[in-house]
Structures are given as structure tokens and as C-alpha cells.
């Protein structure tokens, strides 16, 4: 469905962030993209969604294909029309619009009232709590409600591939697990493909089928989730576990991280 082939991304003509990154996302799958802060995960999503230009970034090399057609450096509105929708980090609701208006704002790709209504009903099927908040300004919602709202906006558009950036950011573990279970249902019941960027590797690997690990603007490891979970480096760096499954102290991990890098 999505094929990112050896792309290079540069900001402001000088800052090289992605250095030959490649990944694929198969239709109907949830794919996790893991990596430390500054590895280039969000930039990867923005390269796919076309939002790089907003920040003066550009795909200078390589190709991005969606359903067999090139989409690199296309305008965001064209990419959304093709069915790719980025749910941005930090939620980014329209604070001065109501929940209802936030949902309507995501319907640019829809033509008929009937389709809009059908999607509206689908949103409230998955997030019934939002129904009672329809008339409330989005700026006054709690963090969890805002996260539900931004995922709902993706559901309102004709989304085939959701690019989800750090959905657990700043939310309680209970709320995060509820949101992740809804994401899994969306994937299974609506066949929505998801490329998930997440700092919480435990969570990401719990719903994903395939995972990529990024370091310094490159993919350094990728495999099916079951194998990734068994990988010693993943255990060490992302799951904080030793070989026997016991937790390793942060101090040791930090030391080990400093000493050993995949791309040293």
C-alpha cells in the first residue's frame, strides 16, 4: 500500500534529517515505527502526508508511493484525497470550534450528506462519549477526549492509511489502553491501515503486526512484532528488559546505550 523508497529529507536546504529511509506498509496492517527522540519518525510521517513543506522541508531524493502512484512532494490536500490522513502529535484540535465542527472540518473529501452522516454515526459508534460533547468547544476537552476527537477526524475523512503520531502523549495508562484497543478494532473491523509512531514500545508492539526501528534518520531494524519482541537490542533499548525478562536499571541501560549504537 505504502512504499517509502530510500528517501532523503532536508529542512531549510541544509539540515539533513532522513538519510535513505525505506519502509513499506501493507494494506490492512498496523505498522509501528519506533525510535528515540530526534530519530526522524515525525519527519517520516510528514514526508508521507506532504506536511514537510509547511516547515520548509523537502524530499530531495528517493520516492514515496501509495497504491502504486508516486506522492512525494505532493500537496497535503491531494494526499488526503488519496486516503492518507496524518493525526498530528500533540493532538492539535481546533480549540475554538466545537466537537461537531471539528468533525465537519475533516469532511473535505466527502461529497454527499449521506456519506457524511454515515461517517458521523461510525465515529459515535467507536467513541460514544464524544456524542454528548458535540456542542462543546474542543479547547475545553480533556487530553483523552481531544485524542479521541483527532482520531475521529481521521475517521470522518475517507482514510485508508492513518499516520498516527504519538497518540499516548500525556495521557493516563488506562486511557491509552482504551484508545489503543479502539485503534485495534478500527483496524480489524474497518480495515483501516495504520502507521503508528509511538515512544511507548510496549503499547505499539502490542497492537502492531510489523515494526521498524529508526536511528539517526535511517531504519536500522525491522521485523514482524513477535520477532522484534525477542530481539536483544529491542529488549534492551525499548522494553528495558534483560535476557531473562527481568527489568534492567535505567542507569545500566543508559550506559549501554551510550556505549553501543546500531549505527556507531
Amino acid at each position: 500500500m505504502l512504499a517509502v523508497n530510500n528517501i532523503e529529507v532536508i529542512y531549510d536546504d541544509v539540515i539533513l534529517v532522513l538519510k535513505g529511509l525505506s519502509l513499506t506498509v501493507e494494506e490492512g496492517k498496523i505498522v509501528a515505527l519506533l525510535g528515540a527522540n530526534g530519530a526522524g519518525k515525525t519527519t517520516t510521517l510528514k514526508a508521507v502526508s506532504g506536511l514537510l513543506k509547511v516547515e520548509n522541508g523537502e524530499v530531495t531524493d528517493g520516492t514515496i508511493e501509495f497504491m502504486g502512484e508516486r506522492i512525494d512532494n505532493k500537496a497535503p490536500e491531494e494526499i488526503v484525497s488519496r486516503g492518507i490522513f496524518q493525526v498530528m502529535e500533540g493532538r492539535c484540535v481546533f480549540e475554538n470550534l466545537t466537537v461537531h465542527e471539528n468533525l465537519v472540518a475533516a469532511t473535505r473529501t466527502l461529497k454527499s450528506r449521506k456519506e457524511i452522516q454515515a461517517r458521523y454515526d461510525m465515529v459515535f459508534h467507536y467513541f460514544p462519549h464524544l456524542k454528548s460533547l458535540r456542542g462543546r468547544l474542543a479547547g475545553y476537552l480533556s487530553g483523552g477526549e481531544q485524542q479521541m476527537l483527532v482520531i475521529s477526524r481521521a475517521m470522518m475523512a475517507r482514510t485508508r492509511l492513518m499516520l498516527l503520531d504519538e497518540p499516548s502523549l500525556g495521557l493516563s495508562p488506562l486511557l491509552v489502553s482504551e484508545i489503543f484497543s479502539i485503534l485495534k478494532r478500527l483496524n480489524q473491523e474497518q480495515k483501516m491501515t495504520i502507521l503508528l509512531v509511538e515512544q511507548n514500545a510496549h503499547l505499539a508492539l502490542s497492537i502492531a503486526e510489523h515494526g521498524y526501528v529508526m536511528e539517526n534518520g535511517k531504519i536500522v531494524l525491522d521485523d514482524v512484532v513477535d520477532k522484534l519482541r525477542e530481539n536483544e537490542d529491542i529488549k534492551m533499548f525499548y522494553l528495558g528488559l534483560t535476557e531473562v525478562g527481568t527489568k534492567r536499571s535505567y542507569r545500566d541501560t543508559k550506559f549501554y546505550k551510550r556505549r553501543k549504537r546500531w549505527l556507531a
Binding site: V54, V80, F94, N96, A105, R108, A157
Partner: peptide, 22 residues
């Protein structure tokens, strides 16, 4: 809808772009 798109752009330009609003 166009009026709501315009208010959305006024509220958060990048988020509006991410949703396909020109």
C-alpha cells in the same frame, strides 16, 4: 462546510492542512 474550513484554518493552519483543507 467552506465556512467551517475557513474557521479551521484560522484556528490551526497546519492541522487544517493535515486534514486536506487547502
Amino acid at each position: 462546510r467552506t465556512g467551517i474550513f475557513m474557521r479551521a484554518v484560522a484556528d490551526h493552519q497546519t492541522a487544517a492542512q493535515s486534514m486536506g483543507i487547502s
